[in-house]
Design a protein around this nucleic acid. Structure first.
Lengths: 348, 348
DNA sequence: AACATATTGGAAAACGTTACCCACCTCACA
DNA sequence: TGTGAGGTGGGTAACGTTTTCCAATATGTT
């Protein structure tokens, strides 16, 4: 019986103004901490707001001013690395008037654009796009409509700020580590990328380039061996299956992401191989999963929390100063050595 | 240099109307598939929309009608079970005009209320609250403001629909399974709950009750052993540490959620114990993690996808018919037997 | 042919806020 | 005693939709 006492009209700014005996303009000023309201006025209005339980309508606000909403899009809810970034966003937003709203933007470019548009339609004050796959042009278009920060994408951009990890160095760290352990046949599983722009901008492509460069630098150029699948558990499983079919098979696998390493482990378990006994394995992202004790995956820490808070800081700054030049923040990754990598001697 | 060609005024319904040579009313009717527009009119308007690249402003819509936005709140981005639910929501929303927006509502009741209010302020057309912790009264208040479906909470409600798994039966399935394997000292790690209402409504409490009931039913009442922590990896770790300190220690642990089982495995690894050699372990939720080959966790499948799509179906229905009586959907869980549980004989 | 009923299209008034501008007051200073 | 500046407060017009009418025309019914 949902009947229940009439839909109860929402308390509006007019009600507050009347109750406090002032104009709606005055109430609005207090709400926005805007100039032109005396301390007395502020107290009076605030107590009226309190008494009436008034809450501003974001829809109405959106028509003239801000909605105090930050939109965050991400490609996947299963990759735990993104949760770290979101924590950083939440932390940075804490204490401000802004609220974050999330949406997943699948992996397909059309669906992604639809989600971005949906956020613009909803008058978000700013957008944080995590690892978007859209074209540069598309991103510039979004950024023209609303302040935008792109996370996890390299390259200079004219319309938006970026925050990214130095994936090239991160990949080098992994190869160096494995090479120092005596490994030569170090294979890599990457996320397939063909678009030339994305080859220069997407983290997965940069990691792959870092891998190749480091292999060359360690005189292991002839051992370069890459499987192109996707950054997902299935991608890892598939890539590992193919690598295991090699003869001789690699002694170490560098998975482009922890989630990929998870799939690799699925395949290794299935094949009855032990880690690092039979084969060494490294991931990337240092997600919660990598720290999982029974696995204890060697990986690269991207400081997701820091990435998220930095992106938020940039976004709030840009909302306040839309004309400042764009900034590119690049963070340094760090290798986290755990138990899935071991010296080649220990490997059969 | 973000300068860039003037902020570019958004295309509005007025532009579309002028371009098509009709009234804004007519355009609005076409947009909403409302009655009163001829097929000719629809074609004419739609092509004008296409040509101008018009997109309706949700803010403006929100002031009079719908925003075509569904708000989804969930307590945690790290529990992969929620990702399954979200997939179900996405699937059910596919092909409709609705877009989903997510927000995390932490675990604390005040923060949760703030998030719910934020969604109402943003004129969401409907809300799906996943495993909310708020009081019944709070939920009823939300539901009075906007069509609401509560996921994962038991008990009759007058203002909102609910979708929940039969957690009591699910817990029984686990105990039955372990008892059939010959286990007696079957311990349980639950999420601490003291509030009397939530003891009757929250899934964690129901699972705990199911565990106790099944233990009694199998004449294992004297072996009932519960650690109260939280549904998180840390909670699992802590609970397991305490259980391992028992003498004699349990031969099997029923973790209230897969994420808890993950923490249990952290503790077991640390203690140098093998699964199921030294101790059997079962989880709950059948998340992606449970299927992870190196672990292969026995668990209870909740069909998260189905839960999500069912909740969405109910919500869309309620948006269309706000007066229909509330519904409680209860889904049946299924045991998924994997490699972390074994006969007691095999256990030392 | 007269009348009722659908169908089609539009004019105008909301919806709740903020931006813009103006009026008033007080105070300091010439 | 003017005059200008800074501080306060408010009136009013947007903002872009949907909703609620109403009028005009087409269709069907006696």
């Amino acid at each position: 019986m949902p009947r229940g006492s009439a839909p109860a009209r929402r308390v509006t700014i007019v009600d507050v103004a009347r109750h406090a005996g002032v104009s709606t303009t005055a109430v609005s000023k207090v709400l926005r901490n805007a100039y032109g309201a005396s301390p007395d006025m502020r107290i009076k209005v605030r107590s009226a707001i309190e008494e009436l339980g008034y809450r501003p309508s974001a829809a109405a606000r959106g028509m003239r001013g801000q909605t105090y909403t930050i939109g965050v899009t991400l490609p996947d809810f299963r990759n735990p690395f993104f949760a770290d970034i979101l924590d950083g966003v939440t932390a940075a937003l804490d204490g401000t008037d802004y609220v974050q709203m999330l949406a997943r933007c699948c992996n397909d470019e059309v669906a992604e654009a639809r989600v971005h548009d949906a956020m613009i339609d909803r008058s978000m004050d700013g957008l944080i796009l995590i690892a978007p796959t859209g074209s540069r042009k598309h991103l510039e278009r979004i950024a023209r409509a609303v302040p935008t920060v792109v996370v996890g994408r390299h390259g200079e951009a004219t319309g938006y700020d970026t925050v990214a990890d130095d994936d090239f160095t991160g990949a080098e760290l992994v190869v160096e580590h494995l090479a120092a352990l005596g490994h030569q046949r170090i294979a890599h599983i990457e996320h397939l990328e063909t678009n030339p722009v994305r080859l220069r901008e997407m983290p997965n492509a940069i990691r792959s380039a870092g891998y190749r460069h480091a292999m060359q630098a360690h005189d292991l150029g002839t051992f370069i061996d890459i499987e192109s699948t996707s950054y997902s558990r299935e991608g890892g499983y598939l890539g590992a299956r193919r690598l295991l079919a090699r003869d001789p098979r690699p002694t170490a696998i560098f998975a482009g992401a922890d989630i990929v390493a998870m799939g690799v482990l699925d395949a290794l378990t299935e094949a009855g191989l032990s880690v690092p006994g039979d084969i060494s394995l490294a991931g990337y992202d240092n997600t919660m999963f990598a720290a999982f004790a029974p696995i204890s995956l060697t990986t690269v820490d991207q400081a997701g929390h820091h990435i998220g808070s930095e992106a938020t800081r940039l976004l709030l700054d840009r909302i306040a100063h839309r004309d400042r030049p764009t900034a590119q923040v690049k963070l340094s990754p760090a290798l986290v050595t755990r138990r899935t990598t071991a010296p080649i001697d220990a490997t059969v």
